[in-house]
Simulated assay, not measured.
Amino acid sequence: MGFRAGQGLIERFTKETPSFKDELDIMKFICKEFWTNLFWKQIDNLRTNHQGTYVLQDNRFRLLTPISSGKQYLEEAPKFLAFTCGLVRGALSNLGINSTVVAEISVMPAC
């Protein structure tokens, strides 16, 4: 469901945006515009190894904040990120990037 929703959302968000020149521009758009439209804040950190791997870090992810008071939900937290991974993967797919999106949580509500 997240994949299909991401495809549709990125079409709407990029309707009046000029075309992107490379992958880094697409990732910057995902971090700034796409994420802001979905979660009302930008990604806190974007890192890359310049070989096609990108790490997006959100230190206060909105979907994890309500359950982040203790460590009892740390094992269950990745279930809350599955839909969001699908959103990002669908958006990237629609922009021409075939990707694998994986979420990691070490300390909540950061992911």
Rank of each mutant, 00 (worst) to 15 (best):
L9R: 10
D58K: 00
L46F: 02
Q42A: 09
T84N: 09
G70H: 11
F20T: 02
I43G: 03
E11T: 08
S19V: 14
K71H: 08
T53Q: 14
R62C: 12
C85E: 13
N45P: 02
L46P: 01
E23C: 07
S69C: 07
A5K: 12
L87Q: 14
T84G: 01
F34D: 01
A103P: 04
V101I: 06
C31F: 08
G70S: 14
Y54S: 02
I105D: 04
R4T: 00
P66N: 04
G8P: 00
T53F: 13
L24Q: 08
S106K: 15
Q7D: 07
E75P: 01
T65E: 15
K41I: 13
R12I: 04
Q42C: 07
R89N: 09
I97R: 10
L63T: 14
W35F: 15
E104I: 00
F34S: 08
D44T: 00
S19Q: 09
A5D: 10
P78G: 08
T14K: 06
K28R: 14
K79F: 07
P66Q: 03
I30R: 11
V101A: 08
F13W: 02
K28H: 10
Q51P: 01
L9A: 09
A103R: 01
I30Y: 03
A5M: 15
E11W: 08
A91K: 06
S106P: 08
L64T: 00
W40F: 15
H50W: 12
D44S: 06
I105N: 07
Q51D: 01
K28P: 02
A77W: 08
E23T: 03
L56V: 01
P18S: 07
Y54H: 05
Y54C: 04
F34Q: 01
S93Y: 05
L95H: 11
I105P: 03
T100M: 12
G2H: 03
L63D: 11
C31K: 07
I26M: 14
G6Y: 04
F13I: 00
D25A: 15
K71T: 09
I67F: 12
Q7N: 11
N37F: 15
K79I: 01
I10L: 10
S106F: 11
P109V: 00
I97Y: 06
E33G: 12
I97F: 12
T36W: 04
F83A: 14
G8I: 00
K15R: 06
N45T: 06
T14C: 05
L46R: 00
C31Y: 04
L56Q: 02
R4V: 00
Q7L: 04
V55P: 02
L92M: 08
M108K: 13
L38E: 09
L92K: 12
I30C: 07
I105G: 09
L63V: 14
F20A: 08
